[in-house]
Amino acid sequence: MKVKLHIWRQSKKSTRKDFKQDGKMVCYEVDHVSPDMSFLEMLDVLNEDLIRSGEEPVAFDHDCREGICGSCGVMIDGVAHGPEKGTTTCQLHMRSFQDGAEIYIEPWRASAFPVIRDLVVDRAAFDRVVQSGAYISVNTGAPQDANAIPIPKPDADKAFDAATCIGCGACVASCKNASAMLFVGAKISHFAHLPQGKVEREQRARNLVEQMDEEGFGNCTNQYECEAVCPKEIPIRVIADMNREFLRAKAKEE
């Protein structure tokens, strides 16, 4: 099959003052695309063509290419990770597109995610949110006996649903307000349902929300675009969990 691509090309890193830099949409045509190729393999084919003709290849993030690392992710026709539900960009296959399709490929757009080059964005803001308290502090020593702390199955499931987040940033990218609340909600909800997380719950809710605000993410307006594109299908329940945890923490603050 044959596709026509419109790709965002940008050679310099975005700054707060100049987010766009020299960026612009460039049109490419790719022949000999197999429907069995993944979306990233199709981009590989394009890049080989570009290298052969002496042009700069398109930079895009990728690593495991099996939907677990969270590295890849681009906006495909305005939808994060493309048209298939519950998949990352690397799990998307060209059979999801018509032969001769015109496809728009853009990087995640958020002031907290500056573009490094082409389709690659800097997601260090997520790391800083995690560093602000999305963990539990424990003394390491001899490991505890398994099942020493009983956790009801429904709670374990809720925590696990949130823990499946791979930090790809699709929630921010798809949100009309570039809000990171699904991501931060997942981190908070992950620990809120577990006894191990209860000790630091107030501090965690406060610190994570504070860091999220400092990074310049937007505010959720409950449109649930994040939930629709999340490759791990994390439910918007985690945002309600976060709101409750934050309100509880603020109410108890001295």
Partner: peptide
Amino acid sequence: ARPVAYQRPG
């Protein structure tokens, strides 16, 4: 929070 809009919003 979104300084550059998507060329093709969805």
